[in-house]
Amino acid sequence: MRFAKTYKNKLHVGITLLFVALPFVFFLVFSTVAHLSFPELLGDLVLSSARLLLAYLLAATIGWVCAVLFYRGPLATVALPIFDVLQSFPTFAALPIAVLFWGPSETTIISFLVITIIWPIFFSIVSNLTMMRKDWQEAITIYHLRGWNYLQYYLIPASRAGFVTGSIVGLGEGWEALIATEIIVSAPHGLGAFFTSVNTNTSVTTFGILGFLLLIFSVNKLIWLPLLHWSHKHLEG
């Protein structure tokens, strides 16, 4: 896979490692200076990241399946306007309903994250697939590509760029929704709990947010931007 070539340069590898280490070094220094427990802070970070990862995996799977099912054909004319209305519904308004059903639980947090992350992924893939060249689809038709071959050689690669773009936007919104949800449902652990516990100390809160942003920046730089570049490059004819 040509994506592996992204990191073949030694300097590039060095910078990559720096980006991996930077957020953790920052949190180590920050927790020492602010007299916080580093293992506890790391635990909150890992727990929140795990919640987001699980929600992302669910949203990505459901979003991709729905997008490839509904992006064209008779179903699209009915389904897409419905999805459009649903995605405009403010997700935070659904939070009290979720709390009512599941209480301040992991299920509430995860399900809330899923409905936040899914829409950018879904619409980005739909937009990506509807913009595929007509003659590519005709080539697929004329050469009778069906079943697994259709998925492997057309649908998966054709939806890749939209999937990556939607994932970047969805995860960006997901981080925001994650912290807010953890605070609203008073989750005992996680970044929401951390920010709640330090909210009277402006400096600690500010540096906490800074470290959090550094982590998101590193993840984007290390994973999502190379993936975005790779996926778009493979759409150039």
């Binding site: 080539a139 050469y143 009778h144 071959n149 050689y153 493979h234």
Partner: peptide, 25 residues
């Protein structure tokens, strides 16, 4: 078989993979 005006090669596949498309079915 059909040859298209603007080639209609799938950009994410290599030349070998593009040529093999018609044989997969």
């Amino acid at each position: 078989a059909f040859v298209f005006q603007q080639f209609a090669l799938l950009p994410w596949l290599t030349v070998f993979e593009n040529v093999s498309l018609g044989l997969l079915s």
